[in-house]
């Protein structure tokens, strides 16, 4: 049972959240310009590192904010990511 640090609500059990996957995979600004391979890669592949991955998490049962954390996929050590817009 991971404990996720929500930037607004503080640390909460992972069951209050939805993990929305790797944050570095942004939707291409112009999907039609993507080749078939690039588009398929965006849809279906993830980096899945052994080590630190930057993820989006959604505090669906709490403040409903979306935020990013860095999570080590081996140790589950979590580091909050500062919101660049704040």
């Amino acid at each position: 049972m991971l404990e996720i640090p929500c930037p607004w609500c503080g640390p909460r059990n992972e069951t209050e959240f939805v993990c929305a996957g790797e944050a570095d995979r942004k939707r291409p600004a112009n999907p039609e310009a993507e080749t078939e391979e690039a588009w398929a890669d965006y849809l279906f592949n993830t980096t899945n590192p052994k080590g630190v991955v930057r993820e989006w998490w959604w505090h669906v049962s709490g403040c409903t904010r979306w935020f990013q954390i860095d999570r080590d996929t081996v140790t589950h050590e979590i580091t909050p990511v500062k919101d660049p817009s704040k």
Partner: peptide
């Protein structure tokens, strides 16, 4: 499952329940 010790009178929050 949130830490209820941290909430004082007059405060509010949202969480899994």
């Amino acid at each position: 499952s949130l830490d209820l010790r941290r909430l004082e009178s007059g405060q509010c929050t949202r969480g899994g329940f």
